[in-house]
Write a protein that binds this DNA or RNA. Structure first.
Ligand SMILES: [Mn+2]
Ligand SMILES: [Mn+2]
Ligand SMILES: [Mn+2]
Ligand SMILES: [Mn+2]
Lengths: 218, 218
DNA sequence: AAATATTTTTACCCTTGTCTAAAAATTAAG
DNA sequence: CTTAATTTTTAGACAAGGGTAAAAATATTT
């Protein structure tokens, strides 16, 4: 139905809308997609023709309901495949994203319906991100960044903001994964660094780490 | 590494080489790929540049060892995914081919290695076709067409030649699948039709059916 | 309010893979 | 051994998607 390139644009715009709360600029899309602004303009005009997004010259774009639905479905497929790769093929969570970038474009509603069932209809992917349902609706949970927590607060790791291999590998080394309980033992206001407890280990983390870990506090 | 189009050409040529035992003509490729001979000429010249096949103007093509290896790997992926779809997602054997046509182009050796293991390293796909190993080698079994069998011979269904939805659905209706035991009760020389026994059922089949069913006789 | 800087668009070119129409080579008939 | 039919290749064109360089619009300073 839609080309690989079109799906990737819609997905990128979907994510940017949620990150920046509002219109998405041409340059932001170009940067996210690692392409040139002129290419983005072309594609955005094409997608506007197809009523997948609204576009006014020089003003940026917003997905239409149908554009948003398609984007959410690509994301649904991406995250379901990530679950498959980790749960069934025993991939490590830092290895699955690039493969899912390919698998997310396989077109077959029946395949996704069966894959979902096979995986037990998971609500979250291996990185803690919610999996949209087949209508494109997402359960948004109230989570916050570890960096927003105060001293002595406890939380459960529910996701990562950044998901580069380096970061995920760091988390592994520290034995932090989805579901891990974390307690803030100390917080330095000058640089935002923290001392935290994970299981029986206590260690120092920089603000950069704390700003990329989502936790759910109780 | 190679584009979707390139992989599809190599795969088609691989199959045609095996069917026609020898050089593959431009028109044969065009027909198989549902494209025009002029397009084939272009692509074949490009693939020859890359040493994936040997090509002499007006003479047809033959895969080189590296071209054959790539083709076999695409076929390996296709058939492994077919096994996955049938064994794990409970698809019916007549539904999996079109989906596998997409999945066969996913690029990740690690993915295929793990998928293979997850499936128990199967030797055959749901249609009875052999799955090439990771080096591109295929176990060719001695099978023959049911139409070549004589009266009173017994055999086990090991594959299908044609694999259209219509044919596979016909086989289902007759309760014939891979592993089914078949006995030839009678054979009409005039039109090649047969009466066969499958389980406790006995029925008539046309030559067209008998020519598209592979059996292994003992 | 100008002048500058930044962002976005336009105009034009490139590559991949496809098609149509015409030319060339090969094969089949007479 | 010519002529006719068939197959294959070449010569353009085109659509998708992406890139460069320059023009136009918008945003930011002075
Ligand atoms: Mn991902
Ligand atoms: Mn993810
Ligand atoms: Mn198949
Ligand atoms: Mn098959």
């Amino acid at each position: 139905m839609f080309s690989l390139a079109e799906e990737n644009y819609l997905k990128a715009i979907y994510h940017l809308e949620h990150e920046n709360q509002g219109e998405v600029s041409t340059n932001a899309i170009a940067e996210r997609m690692d392409t040139k602004p002129s290419s983005v303009t072309d594609m955005v005009q094409k997608l506007a023709e197809k009523d997948l997004l609204s576009y006014k010259k020089y003003k940026g774009t917003l997905l239409t309901p149908s554009g948003r639905k398609i984007a959410a479905n690509v994301i649904r497929k991406h995250r379901l495949w990530e679950v498959f790769l980790v749960e069934k093929l025993n991939f490590h969570w830092d290895e699955v994203h690039v493969i899912a970038e390919q698998l997310e474009h396989i077109q077959s509603d029946e395949l996704i319906a069966r894959l979902d069932k096979f995986l037990g209809s998971p609500d979250f992917d291996p990185h803690g991100d919610p999996i949209p349902d087949k209508h494109g609706n997402v359960k948004r949970t109230e989570k916050k960044l570890l960096s927003e927590c105060e001293k002595n607060q406890r939380g459960v790791c529910v996701g990562v903001k950044e998901s580069s291999g380096e970061f995920l590998q760091y988390l592994d080394k520290r034995k932090i994964s989805i579901g891990t309980k974390i307690k803030v033992l100390g917080k330095e206001f000058f640089d935002g660094s923290m001392i935290i407890q994970v299981g029986s280990d206590q260690f120092f983390i920089s603000q950069k780490i704390a700003e990329n870990l989502y936790v759910q506090t109780n």
